[in-house]
Write a protein that binds this DNA or RNA. Structure first.
Length: 308
DNA sequence: CGTCCAGGTCTAC
DNA sequence: GGTAGACCTGGACGC
């Protein structure tokens, strides 16, 4: 049955990792095939296993605060599946992201000192492609519509997972699977409206190798700058300033502020304003956090998402 | 039943 | 480079 593994929760700089804060870092935790169980404090996801069917896993609290438990659901897992499960969990929790510099920066900050206890790690999907598609699904529509579109994609085009529980636990569709679907599918079945041609073109580009989205997730020796990453994202169909900033947060690129119809009023409310605050004023307020400005802004707005 | 808008983007000036 | 208008969908609201 279920195979239980353990995953050390520690950042590259030795900094603390708060699992609950990470699982609740942003709304994507509740977009299929991810599933957040707030009562249990667990996040279930579907990971791909090379040469085998996708696998359902569940991430939750381990025996200590510095250890997560990773349950591989379904039949007993062999070495290859165990390795994929641990790597998948570490990936979505973004354990490779060094936040120690940011923690040093905000150690004495009246608004953000609490972050240093292990917050600020932005959950990400198994692939950049998945985060890009999902982000397009958040644009210019209510959150419920985002869920509906993503559910449709996963149900219709995703590969069923071993240990899964219905079509919503299918692995997220591959670029190839999405590229093979006609625009009419996105319009008539997914009900994605004007986003439909974006999905077709995005998937085609990635599937054809014209765009290497996954390369954006690696901080290699070549060190792509935030400007270059943003340019690459803005070049994608359906990705504008908001979407680029959001995807960059999942990439651990935290310089851009996510400015949208949720964050703008949330910021005004947080600082006790009744009137809208100009974007330029918000940007100015967070400039002090430098390359971490976007993360500081996000944490400023979401500090109440998890009880301390 | 018409209008507005929700975690915007694109095109055309 | 900055700014109107159009754009799918579906739920909320006013009349």
């Amino acid at each position: 049955m279920t195979t239980s593994l353990q995953l050390p929760l520690v950042g590259p700089g030795g900094e603390a990792v708060d699992l609950a804060r990470t699982l609740n870092s942003h709304g994507f935790a509740e977009l299929a095939p991810a599933s957040l169980d707030e009562a249990a404090g667990t996040l279930s996801i579907t990971v791909r296993v090379a040469g085998a069917r996708p696998r359902r896993i569940r991430i939750g609290a381990g025996p200590s605060a510095s250890t997560a438990r990773v349950d591989v659901l379904g039949p007993s897992a062999g070495p290859r599946v165990r390795a994929a499960a641990l790597a998948g969990a570490a990936h979505v929790l973004r354990l490779d992201h060094d936040l120690s510099g940011f923690y040093d920066l905000i150690a004495q900050d009246p608004d953000l000192a609490w972050v240093a206890r292990g917050a600020g790690r932005m959950l990400r999907s198994p692939t950049v492609f998945e985060d890009v598609v999902k982000t397009i699904c958040t644009t210019n529509c209510a959150w419920r519509a985002t869920i509906r579109m993503v559910n449709s994609l996963v149900t219709s085009l995703g590969e069923p997972a071993i240990g899964g529980d219905g079509p919503l636990t299918n692995a997220f569709p591959t670029p190839a699977a999405m590229a093979a679907a006609p625009e009419s599918f996105y319009r008539d079945s997914v009900r994605a409206g004007y986003r439909s041609p974006y999905f077709v073109e995005l998937a085609r580009r990635v599937d054809a190798g014209e765009t290497d989205l996954e390369a954006l997730a690696t901080f290699g020796a070549d060190m792509i700058s935030d400007d270059d990453v943003e340019r690459a994202l803005l070049d994608l169909p359906g990705i504008g300033p908001y979407a680029a900033a959001h995807v960059m947060m999942t990439l651990g690129r935290n310089s851009r502020l996510i400015l949208d119809s949720w964050t703008r009023p949330a910021y005004a409310r947080t600082i006790g304003r009744t009137k809208p605050v100009p974007d330029a004023a918000i940007v100015r307020r967070f400039r002090r956090y430098g390359e971490h400005a976007g993360l500081a802004f996000w944490l400023f707005l979401t500090r109440d998402w998890v009880e301390d």
